[in-house]
């Protein structure tokens, strides 16, 4: 058991889950959705916009990578510290408690893999920003990989949405049972909307529009 005081790190973990990580996941969902809405054109406009943001490297570092590293690693420790007792207490909220931890672990693996496949390949110079659309097409054309992406995306959106509900409790914003019920309904709507945005963009990336000669270079099965 860790000595010292777990209060501040735990508060920081909770805060980072929403600000900035929650804001990032919303931004990410919207950017990808532009692939569905605006097709190739729309998506590359969004990418161009993001890359035109000043100090984008430092923003990514402090607003995404360091927070996710802290929240993720500390989150794994929190998950390790919890029992799962849904067998004895099969109440909805206890299931949400268990799923918060399970989806956290899935999100951790998914984010690491997804980062390696996309952002890290850009750093290595294997993929350019302009090629990201084709690159995603190559990735999600494989039905197995697509399945893994769907699981990863739904896990991450559930984790964020249910985490947002918990955040409101942890900071004493929703106190009584009615407030918690209303916030639970709102958070589940957020879950559905975010999942829909990500799923639509995943299927958009599979479209012919994103498939070009560049995609053929990647070892992938292109169907449809």
């Amino acid at each position: 058991m860790a000595k010292g005081n777990s209060y501040l790190p735990r508060k920081l973990h909770s805060l980072l889950g929403v600000i900035p990580l929650g804001l990032f996941i919303i931004e990410h969902a919207l950017t990808n959705y532009s692939a569905y809405e605006g097709g190739r054109e729309g998506f590359s406009d969004s990418i161009d916009f993001l890359n035109s943001v000043p100090l984008v490297f430092w923003l990514e570092l402090f607003v995404i990578w360091l927070p996710i590293l802290f929240h993720g690693v500390y989150g794994l420790y929190i998950a390790y510290q919890s029992n799962i007792n849904t067998g004895r207490f099969s109440y909805g909220r206890n299931w949400a408690f268990a799923l918060q931890r399970i989806t956290g672990v899935i999100t951790f693996i998914f984010v690491a893999w997804h980062f390696y496949e996309t952002r890290f390949q850009i750093t290595l110079g294997n993929v350019s920003h302009e090629e990201l659309g084709q690159h995603m097409n190559g990735i999600v054309s494989d039905p197995l990989v697509l399945t893994a992406y769907i699981i990863g995306v739904i896990a991450a959106t559930f984790h964020f949405s249910n985490g947002l509900w918990a955040f409101f409790v942890s900071w004493g914003i929703t106190v009584g049972p009615r407030a918690q019920k209303v916030s639970s309904n709102i958070c589940m709507v957020i879950f559905v909307i975010l999942s829909a945005l990500f799923l639509l963009s995943l299927f958009a990336f599979r479209g012919d529009e994103f498939a070009t000669a560049a995609a053929a270079a990647l070892s992938s099965v292109s169907i449809g």
């Binding site: 929190i78 919890s82 207490f89 206890n94």
Partner: peptide
């Protein structure tokens, strides 16, 4: 109090 994980059991 931060040890609470909101299982509400």
């Amino acid at each position: 109090i931060e040890g609470c994980g909101n299982s509400q059991n």
